[in-house]
Write a protein that binds this DNA or RNA. Structure first.
Length: 421
RNA sequence: GGAGAGGUGCCUGAGUGGCCGAAAGGGCCGGUUUGCUAAACCGUUGUACGAGCUUAAACUUGUACCGAGGGUUCGAAUCCCUCCCUCUCCGCCA
């Protein structure tokens, strides 16, 4: 969430930035500023009263010690308390209201974010070489998966439901090879490997911004009040919740492989065919906690890192800078990576690299002590490197060669062969 | 899941109703001593949100925080209730 003090002090800029996002509820900004003023008044007032009560209590203590009559003083306190009661009730209401409203305001797009309404306004930053032309009898990945017995979608449906594929044989091994390759690639660049829980509690889901808004997207275990993670970002970023990091330890870099679970309620049709959209999928994530002054440098570095990984997979890709209208609620700036699915003839998103600035860390209270010994919020960033299913889809489709499917060089050692066949 | 014990500051650990934000030791930071290191000695050492002062910082001051949330009381780390977690034993188990 945004810092309320920042909103109060930078009202016009906040409005202007939210407009870039096409945020509709701009009135919330002024409402919050008014509520904050009210809150401060109430707080001062109720604390003054409380200070009086505390002082009187200390006097009572002394009266009792001296065995003097404390009853008049107690009556006095009762009067204080009666006047405090409505004050603190109103203060609590005001704070609750502030809390409710501020959670509805999305992050401010950075100054580099282009204005726009949706996907059509995103800016293509880079596009790799030419798209391959496949033979006319080329197959989409779901057919290839069947032909080479790599993935069994029907079996997954029987065991769990749609969107829960079963990877078999070389298909399963390809998953393992990709995960291992991605993790090795990340740790070689200085990311510390983490294996986090894939069920998280409410506080954790709140910390990265999945709650209160997106509970419908997550699977929930009612019995224990746990959420299945939609991405490793959630448990991994929360590792540093409520901590003050040494400035010298910044940036913190972490990478994790986890399965990810998304309910994707309401999705259907050809967009969800095959591996395009699943309820359970594998992803390797990178997360950084960075000094606020360096976070945009870190963002570019992460984009370059993911791009290098993309290139090594020898797939046609492009990088988009998302426009204000297409960015996630918590993001200040986002780059999306898409790979070209040659048989489906469309771009598939495989990575999203974002700087959240202090939007998440403000919730999680992840801070560092700066040179003036003041606590400051760090900036959090994350990105996929990479989400597996769509990469697999493109690897299969783009590299199909009759009786076999060729694999890019870096995977040969991990897969134990150069081709699927 | 059953029985018992317990959750205090960066760490260890005291504190069972009244200046306790919290003893003591350790660590950390600053200083003295020292050829250097070590040792010794002295001092400092939480977070959040308000108010005052200020260009700002420093500072002064108030409130809250001793697992979380409620309650009792003039007053709660200390008593009561609910929840979470940790440890020991039993049960179950990859």
């Amino acid at each position: 969430m945004l810092d309320l003090k920042y909103i109060v002090e930078n009202r016009d800029r906040v409005i202007e930035r939210l407009t870039v996002r096409n945020f509709k509820e701009l009135h919330l900004v002024d409402e919050l500023i008014e509520l904050e003023e009210k809150r401060r008044k109430l707080k001062t007032e109720s604390e003054t009263t409380q200070a009086g009560i505390n002082a009187a209590s200390r006097e009572i203590s002394q009266l009792i010690t001296r065995k003097e009559n404390s009853e008049p003083k107690k009556k006095e306190v009762a009067v204080w308390k009666a006047s405090l009661q409505p004050l603190s009730a109103e203060l609590a209401d005001t704070e609750a209201r502030i809390n409710e409203l501020i959670l509805r305001i999305p992050n401010l797009p950075s100054s580099q974010v282009p204005a726009g309404h949706g996907a059509e306004d995103n800016v293509v930053v880079r596009e790799s070489g030419p798209k391959p032309t496949l033979p006319v009898d080329a197959l989409p990945h779901w057919d290839l998966a069947k032909k080479f017995q790599l993935i069994d979608f029907d079996l997954g449906t029987r065991i769990t439901g749609s969107g829960f594929p079963v990877y078999t044989g070389q298909g399963a091994k390809l998953q393992r090879a990709l995960v291992q390759y991605f993790l090795d690639f990340n740790t070689a660049a200085g990311y510390r490997e983490i294996q986090p829980p894939i069920l998280v509690n409410e506080n954790t889901a709140y910390g990265t911004g999945q709650l209160p808004d997106k509970e419908g997207q997550m699977y929930y275990i009612n019995e224990d009040k746990f959420y299945l993670i939609p991405t490793a970002e959630v448990p991994v970023t929360n590792i540093y919740r409520d901590t003050i990091i040494n400035e010298a330890d910044l940036p913190v870099r972490m990478t994790a492989y986890t399965p990810c679970f998304r309910r994707e309620a309401g999705s259907y049709g050809k967009d969800v065919r095959g591996l395009n959209r699943l309820h359970q999928f594998d992803k390797v994530e990178i997360v950084q906690l960075a000094h606020p002054a360096k976070s945009y440098q870190v963002l570019e570095e992460m984009v370059a890192h993911v791009e290098k990984l993309m290139q090594s997979l020898e797939l046609p890709y492009r990088i988009l800078k998302l426009c204000g209208g297409d960015m996630g609620f918590t993001s200040a700036q986002t780059y999306d990576f898409e790979v070209w699915s040659a048989a489906q003839e469309k771009w598939l998103e495989v990575s999203s690299v974002s700087n959240f600035e202090s939007f998440q860390t403000n919730r999680m209270k992840i801070r560092f002590k700066d040179e003036n010994k003041k606590n400051q919020l760090v900036h959090s960033l994350n990105g996929s490197s990479l989400a597996l299913p769509r990469i697999v889809a493109c690897l299969l489709e783009n590299n199909q060669a009759g009786p076999e499917i060729r694999l890019p060089k870096p995977l040969h050692a991990y897969f134990g062969a150069g081709v699927i066949g």
